[in-house]
């Protein structure tokens, strides 16, 4: 299948007053056309920063290294003015918090229309018409009325629909959704995931779904990448990872997810806290929280290696893992 995005050896570093923090290291993955990739991890695992880097949206003290090839174009290290030719057109992003991600002082139609004016060269009338069609498409009732509203006049779910409409206006090749359902009511979450599925299928858009919620992944994604401490620790097809996790952290995540773990009859949270990126433990970053850790894990960091069947994992432990054994 055709690749739309291929990330090679990407890293993200933040300069602090006297030190540096490596938020993402040695990240490699590809995204195929029409595919949905879930990127899963706790907060601080670097999953959001990786994609903000690809979008050129890092904070001022952040720098990205490596390559993120969209066709022949490397998005990393590109000048913002150059990047603006692609952002919003070929690659779009939806953010976690729909309440603050829309400009409170501009009408919805302005915020939607400007994308088309900028990237498609539409005039205002045409942009408005297309924007209203898109609002209808994402399931907003009375789209003409909503287009003339200000963001604070819409509900949270409605605003996230507006964000989705905005991101899809130019029918981008890649859509990055950063925790798109986290801030929404549970009932709305399901609708929203449905919407993602249909729309990306309709437009042939590849979707990157960044989340910490495996429940979200289950219904939507084709492949997933689990991140811990700034690195990918396991990659593979969603079904494979769900039924046969090979990394203790993936196993732990599955246990902590209520409707997946119910077979185990009890919820088993991962013990301890996510590591501080400034002070990663020696060896495998997960070793302080890992029930399967042995002496080698304390000394060496396991590389990401092929585990057959198109899967990869970064763990020395090869034995069986069972529910209840984690931590």
């Amino acid at each position: 299948m055709k690749q739309v995005l291929s990330v090679e050896d990407m890293s993200v570093t933040f300069a602090l007053h006297e030190s540096e923090v490596h938020a993402v290291r040695e990240m490699n993955f590809t995204l195929a056309e029409g595919e949905t990739l879930a990127v899963v991890g706790e907060s601080g695992s670097g999953k959001s920063q990786a994609f903000l880097a690809i979008m050129g949206l890092l904070a001022k003290n952040g720098t990205a290294g490596g390559r993120a090839m969209m066709g022949d174009i490397n998005l990393i290290g590109m000048a913002p003015s150059q990047l603006d030719l692609y952002r919003g057109k070929d690659i779009a992003m939806i953010f976690q918090d729909p309440m603050t991600s829309l400009n409170p002082t501009l009408k919805v139609k302005t915020q939607l229309g400007e994308v088309l004016v900028k990237h498609r060269g539409f005039d205002k009338q045409a942009a408005l018409k297309t924007a209203i069609e898109m609002l209808e498409r994402v399931g907003i009732p009375e789209p003409v009325k909503r287009a003339n509203a200000y963001p604070h006049e819409l509900s949270g779910g409605m605003r996230q629909r507006v964000m989705i409409a905005m991101a899809l206006l130019c029918q981008p090749k890649i859509l990055i959704a950063d925790e798109p359902t986290t801030a929404l009511d549970v009932t709305v979450q399901a609708q929203m995931l449905d919407l993602f599925k249909t729309l990306t299928q309709d437009f042939g858009t590849s979707l990157v779904l960044i989340t910490h919620d495996l429940g979200v992944v289950a219904g939507v994604a084709d492949r997933m990448m689990v991140m811990y401490g700034g690195r990918a620790v396991e990659k593979g097809r969603v079904d494979d990872l769900f039924y046969d996790p090979r990394h203790p952290y993936t196993l732990g995540l599955l246990h902590s997810t209520p409707h997946i773990a119910k077979r185990a009859a009890r919820l088993d949270p991962i013990q301890g806290l996510p590591p501080s990126l400034e002070h990663l433990p020696k060896g495998c970053s997960f070793n302080p929280r890992c029930a399967f850790a042995f002496d080698r894990c304390l000394e060496q960091r396991p590389p990401l290696t092929d585990a057959g069947d198109g899967r990869q994992k970064a763990c020395f432990y090869e034995g069986p893992m069972a529910y209840g054994q984690v931590a």
Binding site: M55, G56, L57, P80, S81, L83, D84, L85, Y86, R87, G88, K89, A92, M93, F95, D97, T100, S101, L102, N103, P104, E114, V115, K118, H119, M163, M166
Partner: peptide, 13 residues
């Protein structure tokens, strides 16, 4: 966040 959104839309400074 909304300025970040605007940047993600490629609007230009």
């Amino acid at each position: 966040n909304y300025v970040r959104t605007a940047r993600s839309k490629g609007l230009g400074t």
